[in-house]
């Protein structure tokens, strides 16, 4: 018999996945709407119309927005009164297994070499669970699709190349082209170590895209000059937003990671 705590966490994860998969956050819908309004290409406008019609149908039929329901990345914050425990990991994985059946999700988790599919979106180290201290007990899920994840990159830049960070980000987006389902959200992690820069880039995708600071806006403008447009068919908006997270790094290093997110920028946070 699972403990009430286990049940609470598993249910919260399952519910957060359901909501993330079937309805986009308000800030993402606003950004897509703005992109549609300023678009002048008829083909690109048609792509946005399909996107809005798709969002309407997904909500109405209570089905996933995209068939690539992703791998499930989970962020948990723990206040001082909730103990850190192995049970948290087990409960979160149980939430993923339940959501695979109830939403339903496409089983995407496979062994990297044999390609054997576990059938329940869980496996060694999967779901990806990140636990940190916080003021409140929260669970945030980020279902991450492969089309955009496959186009992500990390570069160990030189400290003397600080001025070229924006160029690197643009080059990653240019190379990705039509493949990550633009218009995209671009998460950038600057600093940390070889492994933590991509983690920062992914955390940047959790930030609201209602606003950008000057640095983020300047990279975003530069990306939008590329003209890749919705689905790579040409258009004014290639990136809906660029979000940056920074971490301290070694004086001899400058790791920069770019985590690309498709227009279907799914995330849901629940408080327990």
């Amino acid at each position: 018999m699972p403990s009430p705590f286990f049940e609470k966490v598993a249910s919260a994860v399952e519910a957060a996945i359901h909501d993330a998969e079937t309805e986009l956050p308000a800030d993402v819908i606003s950004a897509l709407t703005r992109a549609y309004e300023i678009e002048t290409s008829a083909v690109a406008k048609g792509e946005y119309e399909n996107i809005f019609e798709n969002l309407r149908i997904a909500k109405e039929r209570d089905v996933p927005i995209c068939q690539d329901t992703g791998l499930i990345v989970i962020y948990i914050t723990l206040p001082p009164y909730v103990p850190y425990s192995a049970e948290l990991y087990e409960a979160a994985a149980e939430g993923v297994r339940r959501a695979t059946v109830s939403v339903p999700l496409r089983p995407n988790a496979v062994d990297p070499v044999s390609r054997h599919n576990s059938g329940n979106n869980c496996g060694e180290g999967m779901p990806s669970i990140h636990i940190s201290p916080g003021d409140k007990f929260t669970v945030t899920v980020l279902p991450k699709g492969a089309g955009s994840e496959n186009m992500s990159q990390i570069k160990m830049m030189l400290p003397s190349e600080v001025g070229s960070i924006a160029d690197f980000v643009c080059e990653v987006v240019r190379t990705a082209g039509s493949r990550p389902c633009p218009p995209m959200v671009v998460g950038v992690g600057i600093g940390g170590t070889f492994d933590s820069a991509p983690a920062l880039a992914k955390e940047a995708l959790l930030l609201s895209i209602d606003s950008m600071d000057e640095f983020e806006q300047s990279i975003c403008d530069k990306i939008n000059e590329l003209g890749i447009g919705a689905m790579g068919l040409g258009g004014k908006t290639t990136a809906l937003a660029v979000k940056v997270k920074r971490g301290a790094c070694h004086t001899a290093s400058l790791p920069v990671a770019v985590n690309i997110q498709c227009w279907c920028c799914r995330r849901r946070r629940v408080e327990l």
Binding site: N50, I51, E53, N54, R61, I65, Q67, V110, M231, C264
Partner: peptide, 24 residues
């Protein structure tokens, strides 16, 4: 249009499957 999975499904009927062993 990439990501428009619900819209696509709304015009589809399943008829059959081959290579089911490859997974969904």
């Amino acid at each position: 249009t990439g990501g428009c999975a619900a819209l696509a499904a709304s015009c589809m009927k399943l008829k059959g499957v081959h290579y089911a062993d490859l997974g969904m």
